[in-house]
Design a protein around this nucleic acid. Structure first.
Lengths: 334, 334
DNA sequence: CTGTTAGCGCATTCAC
DNA sequence: GTGAATGCGCTAACAG
């Protein structure tokens, strides 16, 4: 009775409808909007799908409905650990709503960011989530005109392209400086990667300290290796440094390791603070004081905002500041 | 003269063609196949694109041409550091060929893997790259029938679904066991995550040792924290353990930290070997002996195989074994 | 609850 | 080199 397709000619909804003895549109509704179809019909269509081995074509549906059910996520490179929980939750949360995530890597490069955004628009993504703020003015214009929902993340500004879930890096820098000063440390230093957000944290740090501080700048993304080098560099500049703020936990771990290798006691002689609260931070020796950001929360909120917009719901809170916290551990003494 | 569209009605190739005073198809060719169109026409079309703010619709093109210019990548969860270089290079290499990557997370769950594969097929991805082997027989059948290029990675088998770039985890386990035995260590132990590939390495390890060894099993993905616990557990079982093989570098770092906390000298009293050669491995104290896999290479090759297939080129080497190497460092003494 | 009529925006035939 | 017709597979409208 049923002809299991064995040929390349792919099975379409048309075939399903014929097999089920209903019209094309009824088959369509049975699958995507079952509430308006009778139980019996749904069952017959379901069976016809089984028999024919039908796989819906979302491209075709999207062409008509103008919804691709995809969302773009742009990160500098996927291997930056900071953004991982965000990407993870973003993907999970979107998946629950039937959306798939298209990943783009800008490589810290504006031209690539712009080109990627073009590619994503060409794919008619229903939304875009950026790690960081959007850098390309030209792209911003286009996205605004096309009314594509955009969520910028991991940063803060008064004038986001559209929506935003993040926090102030300047305030993070200020908070860490305040924390150090509160402990009575005066000879402060910074080890930071050469990216935009690290620079902002440095700014906040310095403005709270009230003067410039010795700074070791390493290439992004920062690593344990660059942390070791950074400490060496800072000590060469001022052997009496009392506290170092690092722009990532990996960098901070490098500083801890180099300190031990040099016989410098942490926190006895040197205090160290990281950024990110990586899973290993609590388990280093000494355990690492660091700045905690809820990256998973950022991903979840961003997904929810995009999905809400796609469902035509207004997003009341367009700018969400998730804040941050300083997690005090052994590396800043007690 | 030119009407810059300011309304929601999106600009189509039709509008571009009118603006340029050519037919629809000529405009299409000018953009996607310029070799067949005169220089002058190309220029006029190019200008019309500017004026109208046209953005091509890949969904529409894909519907007709049956090529979506997307490739799916399925990982357990994106935050598993091992797969990061693979995903990074995969994304980069695909992007160079005009393909975008759609990310899926199986969450170590077969049902989700199967559902995700369905979703990807619905999106008419032109290829699929799996981290690990495919677990779902049902999905395999379907993919074979649809002739979608599939590359399984980070593992090895005689009968891949389609193509494969990976290495033998059993051999890795064997090699590490052989390495330990060669140093004269006899009281061996394993700390491993409870995933499939870790289990295979354990198998290889044990078969080379010739008898079972104390094993601490931790949840996947493994962490520094679980490494500390694992060492505690293993020492409780046998305080005289001489060498431990860990299923990840994070786990190994946890072991190193716990060892130091307990005053156990590494490598003096205990040797430790990790897996993955994470960037921090070389910079720990003591530096970590580990198994190095070229994850970037895996991603690059996988992308090339998929793209070749999409271009209709035959892939001669369907199974690529990228091998592995043991990187000897201080944690296994000298 | 179900069906008919029209396209979505583009690329693949064919003609010229 | 360029153009006219046709349809990819599906869903939004409207009718019944």
């Amino acid at each position: 009775m049923a002809a299991t397709s064995s040929f390349a000619k792919s099975v379409t909804l048309h075939d399903v409808a014929r097999e089920a003895g209903v019209s094309l549109i009824t088959a369509s509704r049975a699958l995507s909007n079952p509430d308006v179809v009778s139980k019996a019909t749904i069952e017959r269509v379901r069976r016809a799908v089984e028999v024919t081995g039908y796989v819906p074509n979302l491209l075709a549906g999207g062409l008509k409905s103008k919804r691709s059910m995809t969302v773009a996520a742009l990160v500098p490179v996927i291997s930056v650990p900071q953004f991982l929980p965000t990407v993870q939750l973003l993907t999970e949360e979107l998946d629950r709503a039937g959306y798939q995530l298209i990943l783009g890597q800008t490589g810290y490069d504006r031209a690539r960011e712009s080109a990627l955004l073009d590619a994503m628009v060409s794919r008619r993504v229903d939304g875009i989530v950026m790690a960081g703020l959007m850098n390309t003015e030209r792209a911003v214009e286009r996205l605004r005109r096309l009314r594509i929902p955009v969520v910028e993340t991991w940063d803060l500004t008064d004038r986001p392209v559209d929506m935003l879930v993040g926090f102030s890096h300047v305030k993070v820098g200020s908070a860490v400086a305040g924390f150090f000063l509160g402990r009575g440390w005066r000879r402060l230093a910074i080890a930071t990667a050469d990216d935009q957000r690290g620079a902002q944290r440095r700014e906040g740090f310095i403005s709270t300290v009230g003067r410039d501080v010795p700074t070791a700048v390493v290439g992004a993304p920062s690593t344990v290796r660059s942390g070791r080098q950074a400490l060496a560099e800072l000590l060469a500049r001022d052997p009496a440094i009392e506290a170092i703020y690092c722009s990532s936990d990996a960098l901070a771990e490098g500083v801890l390791i180099e300190a031990r290798a040099r016989g410098i006691d942490v926190p006895g002689r040197l205090a160290v603070c990281g950024f990110g609260d990586a899973d290993f931070a609590a388990h280093l020796e000494p355990s690492l004081t660091t700045v905690r950001i809820d990256g998973a929360q950022i991903g979840r909120r961003a997904a929810q905002m995009i999905v809400a917009r796609c469902h035509g719901q207004p997003v009341d809170e367009r700018i969400v500041d998730v804040g941050f916290g300083i997690v005090e551990r052994a590396s800043t003494g007690g």
